[in-house]
C-alpha cells in the first residue's frame, strides 16, 4: 500500500516526501527479502527430495555392488541377518537376498487390492449414487475417519481379533505339527496381513473414487437415462467408466499405501520371510511372511551392524523404486485416459 500513500502525498513538503520515499524503499527491501526467503524454502524442498533419493541409494550401494541382481532373486533374508549379526567384525557378511520380502510385499498388496477394489468402488457408488442425501455426509465422515485411524491401531485390533480368529478357525494342532519343520502356524500370517491391509486401503480408494464420480458431468447421466438405461446400468456403463482415471489413481495410491505399510504388517503377518507355497493349498494363506517395509521395522534393532544397515537401506531402495514408479504411472495413466477420451 506504500506506493498508494505516495500518490496521495504529492502536496506535502519535501522533507516529508523524502521520508515517504525511504519508506517505499524499505518496503521494497522487505518484499524482496521475503521473496528470497520463499525462494530459499522452495529450493530447500527441492533439495531435500533429491537428497533423500541419493542418500538412500548411497547407503545401500554396497549391497547392490556385492549382490547385484541376486538381491532380488535369492531368499533367506532372516537367516542372513542372523549370520551378519553374529559375524566377526573383520569378516562381515554382505550376502543378502530379499526375494522372500519382495514376494511378501507383492502377495499382501495384491490380496489386499483384490478385496479393497470391489469394496472401495462399491462404497463409492453407494455414497455418490445410491444413498439418500442425508446419508451421504455421514458415510463420508466414516470413510474419512477410517482413513485417519493410525496403523498401530489397525495392527492392535487385527492382532487381538483377526489373528486369534484365524488361529481358532483355520489352524488345528495336526496342521501345526505337519508344518512345524517349516514354520510355526500361529495365525500371524499372510491372511491376517491381507485382511488388515485391505481395510486400511479401502478408504483411500473410496475417497478418490467419490471425487472422481462426483466430477462426472451430470449430462452423461441424463443422456444415459434418456437412452433407456436403468440407473444401475448407467452407473456401470457410463458413470464409473467416465470416472476411471480418478478411480485408477485411487487404486494406485492404495497400492502405494499397501506396499509401504510397515507397522501393522509387522504386527500381524508373522515377521519371518517365508515364501508361501501354492502347493500347500489353504496353508498358503496361513504362512507367516515378512514384507519389505516391515522388515525394516523388525530388523532395525540390528542396524548398528554396517552390512545389516545397508541391507535395510536396500529394502528402502526397492520400496522407493516401486512407489516412485507407481506415482509416475498414475500420471501416465491419467494422461492416456484423458487423451483417449478426447479431453486433451
Amino acid at each position: 500500500m506504500d506506493s498508494l500513500e505516495l500518490s496521495t502525498s504529492l502536496s506535502v513538503d519535501k522533507a516529508e516526501k523524502k521520508n515517504q520515499s525511504i519508506r517505499v524503499r524499505l518496503g521494497r527491501l522487505r518484499d524482496s527479502v521475503c521473496e528470497s526467503g520463499i525462494f530459499v524454502l522452495t529450493a530447500s524442498s527441492a533439495i531435500i527430495i533429491v537428497f533423500i533419493f541419493i542418500f538412500i541409494l548411497i547407503k545401500s550401494w554396497n549391497i547392490f555392488a556385492v549382490n547385484g541382481i541376486n538381491f532380488v532373486l535369492k531368499s533367506g533374508f532372516d537367516q542372513q541377518i542372523i549370520e551378519a549379526y553374529h559375524a566377526p567384525a573383520d569378516k562381515p557378511v554382505w550376502h543378502f537376498g530379499a526375494l522372500g520380502l519382495l514376494l511378501g510385499s507383492g502377495l499382501t498388496t495384491v490380496g489386499a487390492l483384490l478385496l479393497a477394489i470391489p469394496l472401495g468402488i462399491g462404497t463409492a457408488i453407494v455414497i455418490t449414487e445410491l444413498s439418500p442425501r442425508w446419508m451421504k455426509g455421514l458415510l463420508q465422515s466414516f470413510i474419512r475417519l477410517l482413513a485417519s485411524i493410525p496403523s498401530v491401531i489397525y495392527g492392535l485390533v487385527a492382532l487381538l481379533v483377526v489373528v486369534p480368529f484365524i488361529q481358532d478357525n483355520f489352524i488345528t494342532s495336526e496342521l501345526q505339527l505337519q508344518y512345524i519343520k517349516q514354520f510355526q502356524l500361529t495365525g500371524n500370517s499372510l491372511l491376517a496381513g491381507i485382511a488388515v491391509l485391505s481395510i486400511m486401503i479401502t478408504p483411500v480408494i473410496v475417497a478418490l473414487s467419490v471425487d472422481a464420480i462426483n466430477a462426472v458431468p451430470h449430462r452423461y447421466k441424463e443422456a444415459s437415462l434418456a437412452l433407456g438405461l436403468s440407473h444401475w446400468r448407467t452407473i456401470v456403463k457410463v458413470i464409473v467408466p467416465s470416472a476411471k482415471s480418478g478411480i485408477t489413481a485411487g487404486i494406485i495410491l492404495g497400492t502405494g499405501r499397501a506396499i509401504g505399510e510397515a507397522l501393522a504388517l509387522s504386527m500381524v503377518s508373522g515377521g519371518i520371510g517365508n515364501i508361501p507355497n501354492p502347493a500347500d493349498g489353504g496353508v498358503f494363506f496361513l504362512t507367516p511372511i515378512l514384507t519389505l517395509a516391515s522388515a525394516i521395522i523388525n530388523k532395525s534393532e540390528s542396524m548398528s551392524v554396517p552390512s545389516i544397515n545397508a541391507a535395510l537401506f536396500a529394502c528402502g531402495v526397492l520400496l522407493l523404486v516401486t512407489c516412485t514408479t507407481l506415482s509416475l504411472f498414475t500420471k501416465i495413466v491419467e494422461r492416456s485416459i484423458r487423451r483417449r477420451e478426447g479431453l486433451e
Binding site: 522452495t42 533429491v50 525394516i296 520400496l319 506415482s327
Partner: peptide
C-alpha cells in the same frame, strides 16, 4: 519436474523416510 518430485515424495512410504532420518 519439481511438482512431480513432490508427488513422488508424497508417495514414499514413511518407513523409508524414517530410516533416512535415522541415518542422517
Amino acid at each position: 519436474t519439481f511438482r512431480l518430485g513432490i508427488d513422488v515424495l508424497s508417495g514414499v512410504p514413511t518407513i523409508v523416510v524414517a530410516i533416512f532420518g535415522l541415518a542422517v
